[in-house]
């Protein structure tokens, strides 16, 4: 861990990955987000740092919370926000990703927020456009704003990130949320644990920067944060895990397993949740659940990222 430089700023053109982000950069973003979060609780939520700017949400994959969160963040900062509906766009007519990027680029947006089902697609697109690009999730690779909003949620609830033990549990193999979080949490000095059945662990999981557990009870021992991941339906039917029932029994967060963690451990989930699969309903609604705070912090973090990127935009 590098100690955060008090004068550090986030001075990048794109936000594509959490890998390589410096502690100072993350802290700078979280500091801006902190203020945005407070502002978002006021009646007057709007500012004009993005006045005159155009933000395009380009989602090749369905999303509710991330897309609306970016839309709201852009609007609260005064940008013109456009949502590209890929289902009715020329993409569905066979246009390649690069052609779509070039077409949009010609419309002179300032910031492009992109989600794509293929790992690396957002980076490819970023190479082809003149505007700033934010990765809103590419395949099983990265989802940087999710990791940042998780970090903000933790920092606001616990007052710090460094030194905390954070367990990331579930389908790590297919999770971009896990990869981004492992990067950010390690950079910020947290101790990361990765908990999953062997069939949902990526190869070389132990090399990612976390201690690996296949027994959830052991993995949760003395954790400060329990971060659950979503298990996709098509992976529950005997291909990766035998059934939702068995998965819930061994890897679903219930009161009994939660009791292994510290008494003040926080419960997190990036959503959308499968109640009764990876998390018990009562745990999702537990007093120590910060799942709804994560959604709130999502808007704040995205505002912070937009604001930081806007500072790098050309003004001529």
């Amino acid at each position: 861990m590098t100690s955060p430089d008090p004068n550090a700023t986030f001075a990048r053109r794109h936000l594509l990955t959490c890998e390589g982000l410096k502690a100072g950069e993350i802290t700078a973003l979280l500091d801006i987000a902190d203020k945005a979060a407070d502002q978002n609780r006021q009646v007057r939520k709007k500012r004009d740092v993005l006045a005159g700017r155009t933000l395009i949400n380009l989602f090749f994959e369905a999303s509710t919370r991330t897309q609306s969160s970016f839309e709201l963040a852009g609007k609260r900062l005064g940008a013109d926000v456009m949502n590209m509906n890929v289902a009715t766009s020329s993409v569905s007519k066979g246009e390649t990703l690069v052609d779509t990027a070039m077409t949009l680029n010609a419309m002179r947006p300032d910031i492009l927020v992109v989600r794509h089902h293929a790992a690396g697609a957002v980076e490819l697109l970023a190479q082809k456009v003149d505007c700033s690009v934010i990765n809103a999730g590419d395949g099983a690779h990265q989802h940087p704003t999710q990791a940042l909003l998780d970090a903000l949620t933790i920092r606001r609830a616990k007052g710090r990130i460094a030194g905390l033990t954070v367990a990331i549990c579930g389908d790590v193999m297919h999770s971009r949320v896990a990869r981004s979080n492992i990067d950010v949490l390690n950079t910020m000095g947290a101790r990361v644990r990765i908990i999953a059945p062997s069939t949902l662990l990526p190869p070389a999981a132990e090399r990612l920067g976390g201690e690996v557990f296949t027994d959830m009870n052991k993995g949760l021992e003395d954790c400060d944060i329990v971060m659950m991941l979503r298990l996709q339906r098509e992976r529950m039917e005997g291909s990766f895990v035998p059934s939702t029932r068995e998965y819930y029994h061994f890897f679903g967060l219930d009161a009994e397993k939660l009791a292994r963690a510290k008494p003040d451990a926080l419960i997190m989930h990036p959503g959308p949740m499968n109640r009764g699969v990876e998390i018990a309903s009562t745990i999702a609604d537990h007093p120590r659940s910060v799942i709804r705070d994560q959604v709130e912090m999502g808007v704040a973090v995205r505002m912070a990222v937009l604001e930081a990127l806007a500072r790098q935009l050309r003004n001529d």
Binding site: E237, G238, S239, P242, R245, E246, H249, F250
Partner: peptide, 15 residues
């Protein structure tokens, strides 16, 4: 170890 011995979907080995 697979449902109905179908050779495709694994059973609830833990349970």
């Amino acid at each position: 170890m697979t449902r109905e011995l179908n050779g495709e979907e694994m059973t609830e080995i833990g349970l």
